[in-house]
Computed example of a mutant assay.
Amino acid sequence: MTIDRRSLLGASLATGLAAGTLRAQTPPPQAQKAQAPGLPQPTETIDLWPAGAPGVPSPALAEKVDERSTDSLVTDRAVYGITRPRMAVFRPDRPNGGAVLITPGGGYRWVVVDKEGYEMGRWLAARGFTAFVLFYRLPGERWAAGPDVPLVDAQRAMRLIRHRARDFAIDPERVAAMGFSAGGHVCASLSTRFAVPVYQPVDAADRLSARPVCAAPIYPVISMDPAIAHPGSRRLLLGENPSPGQAMAWSPDQTVPADAPPHFLLHAEDDDVVPVENTLRLRAALKARGVPVEMHLFAHGGHGFGLRKSLGKPVEAWPELWRAWARTAGLG
């Protein structure tokens, strides 16, 4: 992957001059419930759009956070009505130069905060990676970009991470993507449509590449084929009765370019929410285009296991499998 280093240097310098502005970012999503003790919460965020997100719906949305956990020691928040898409940042004590953009799931109904967001951010930061948890806009909430709106935010997020690479001691050529469930669809859309223009450039960051060095869609929503699609994600993305052409255009297995990055795929065969065939179709498409791919299937795990629900099962090994693979895929 080629990064325009002159553009990157100019963007980084501009970022330094605008330091005062960068401090005034939108806080992470909040909920009324007290935070679980001992779990660090992010305090640093990066707003994606300096003048506000494009294509605002009318009437305006109001961001809301639901706390779904009844356990005082475990948080399980979900956010929707996102009007200021942003990244929550997890900085490691000793940066290894690598970064990961995380797109949590939520069936395009909401974006989960903890299970596939903050928990993975903490895990990555503990191992030297700078993690950016993306709270992306939802396609069913009337944004002008429609089904492309999560991809718009994901492309912009990748470019902003590179734009601010020096601020985080990361190598701009070592920025990966990882997504879960519907967030896996965001991840796979980014890894296959990174070069597709889906928004008007707004600043110097948009001169940079949105291609991740490698991608890890985890138990992902991939196909919009009604035979295997997750019905809720498909409906919120494309409406009740999308045409066959629409279904193909927003199925990442149908949009793989020859220069797609290496992929790490993971799914449980007993997933009763998003059929494993989604991952199988993406693997077949990647192989057909000559894109490096590693796939792990586990007999048991169900859907949405993330880190917390994998404990005590063979699928518990998945994060270290990803980490070992990432070393061979350019992330280091």
Results as ranks from 00 to 15, higher is better:
15 T>S: 12
17 L>A: 09
17 L>I: 11
18 A>V: 08
20 G>S: 01
20 G>C: 04
20 G>K: 15
21 T>Y: 13
21 T>Q: 07
21 T>H: 12
22 L>I: 00
22 L>Q: 10
23 R>W: 07
24 A>Q: 15
24 A>T: 15
24 A>G: 10
25 Q>W: 00
26 T>H: 08
27 P>K: 13
28 P>S: 14
29 P>W: 08
32 Q>T: 14
32 Q>L: 13
33 K>G: 11
34 A>I: 00
35 Q>V: 02
39 L>E: 03
39 L>P: 02
41 Q>P: 00
43 T>A: 11
43 T>F: 10
43 T>H: 13
44 E>N: 10
44 E>K: 13
46 I>S: 04
46 I>Q: 02
48 L>W: 10
48 L>E: 12
51 A>D: 15
51 A>L: 09
51 A>T: 13
56 V>M: 08
58 S>K: 02
58 S>I: 00
58 S>W: 04
59 P>A: 08
59 P>I: 06
62 A>C: 03
63 E>V: 11
64 K>E: 04
64 K>Y: 03
65 V>T: 15
65 V>I: 11
67 E>R: 00
67 E>N: 06
67 E>F: 01
68 R>D: 05
71 D>V: 03
71 D>Q: 03
72 S>D: 03
72 S>R: 01
75 T>P: 06
75 T>N: 04
77 R>V: 02
78 A>V: 09
78 A>N: 05
79 V>Y: 01
80 Y>K: 14
80 Y>P: 01
81 G>Q: 05
81 G>R: 07
81 G>S: 09
82 I>M: 03
83 T>Q: 05
84 R>P: 00
84 R>N: 09
84 R>V: 14
84 R>L: 08
85 P>H: 11
85 P>A: 11
85 P>F: 10
86 R>T: 00
87 M>I: 08
87 M>E: 04
89 V>E: 04
89 V>M: 04
90 F>M: 10
90 F>C: 08
91 R>F: 04
93 D>W: 09
94 R>I: 15
97 G>P: 12
98 G>A: 15
98 G>W: 00
98 G>V: 11
99 A>G: 11
99 A>S: 13
100 V>T: 15
100 V>F: 07
102 I>G: 15
102 I>N: 10
103 T>G: 12
104 P>N: 12
108 Y>P: 03
109 R>P: 00
110 W>R: 13
110 W>L: 11
112 V>L: 06
114 D>E: 06
115 K>H: 09
116 E>M: 06
117 G>F: 00
118 Y>D: 05
119 E>D: 15
119 E>N: 02
119 E>P: 04
120 M>W: 12
121 G>I: 02
122 R>W: 00
